[in-house]
């Protein structure tokens, strides 16, 4: 038998594939959430075309029970994502902070903000989902009233969400892929800029509508 350095003691009591499963769970849940976020922003942006388009899309998702399946599903995926990524947070965050301040390396910094934005998103997105469900069904005038009153809330959530999604998916491509970092970075930055622009435009339209409705 070949001596491969496998320690027999470690083979009992622990699934040796657990680290892989957790890593895959992080990857898959992350991809689903990014997919959801981008779709969500495109759907929201239909308000730019018109109030009727927005309302009929919301109606369509409601009629075919897509909202009722989608929202709990994404909630579950988000919960899995949170549980799985928590293992990445260092036991002593000072160690990471000191390291980042020493080597002054761009991607090392962006990861710190990955944690910060995660906390922000967990809090703000929770409030957002709660407000949407309380005001069910989704309609342009209720959404507009919300955006008009809390535009700053949505502005912050938009930026945090896009940052987290953009850099998160970038890192997954870097870890698994065979695409050059510059190439994938450029592609994701471009998508992020488009999505943020759509989000800002939609927010602007909503705020204008909300003002008009009063």
């Amino acid at each position: 038998m070949l001596d491969t350095g496998i320690s027999p003691q470690r083979s009992i009591g622990r699934n040796p594939r657990m680290d892989l499963y957790l890593d895959l769970a992080q990857l898959i849940s992350g991809f689903l959430l990014v997919g959801f976020l981008w779709t969500h922003m495109v759907f929201v942006a239909t308000i730019i075309i018109g109030v009727n388009t927005f309302n009929s899309l919301a109606q369509f998702l409601d009629d075919y029970y897509l909202s009722y399946v989608g929202i709990p599903f994404i909630g579950l995926v988000a919960l899995i994502h949170v549980i799985v990524v928590c293992r990445r947070i260092p036991n002593r965050y000072q160690d990471y902070w000191r390291h980042a301040r020493t080597i002054m390396h761009f991607d090392t910094w962006t990861w710190i903000f990955q944690v910060v934005t995660a906390l922000g998103i967990a809090f703000l997105a929770g409030i957002h989902v709660f407000l949407v469900i309380m005001g069910w069904p989704i309609e342009a005038d209720t959404s507009a009233a919300r955006m008009h009153a809390f535009w700053w809330f949505y502005l912050v959530l938009l930026i945090l969400g896009e940052y987290h999604a953009g850099f998160g998916i970038y890192r997954q491509f870097v870890k698994w892929g065979w695409i050059k970092r510059k190439t994938i970075g450029f592609a994701l930055k471009s998508i992020t800029v488009i999505i943020v622009a759509l989000g800002l435009a939609a927010l602007w339209v909503f705020v204008q509508l909300g003002g008009a409705l009063r």
Partner: peptide, 23 residues
Amino acid sequence: EYFEVVGSDEGVFGCYGLMACDD
């Protein structure tokens, strides 16, 4: 056999993908 050596957080799955090594 390789998996036993590097298929964990001590090995390749511990990488955060920050690429300070590469840089």
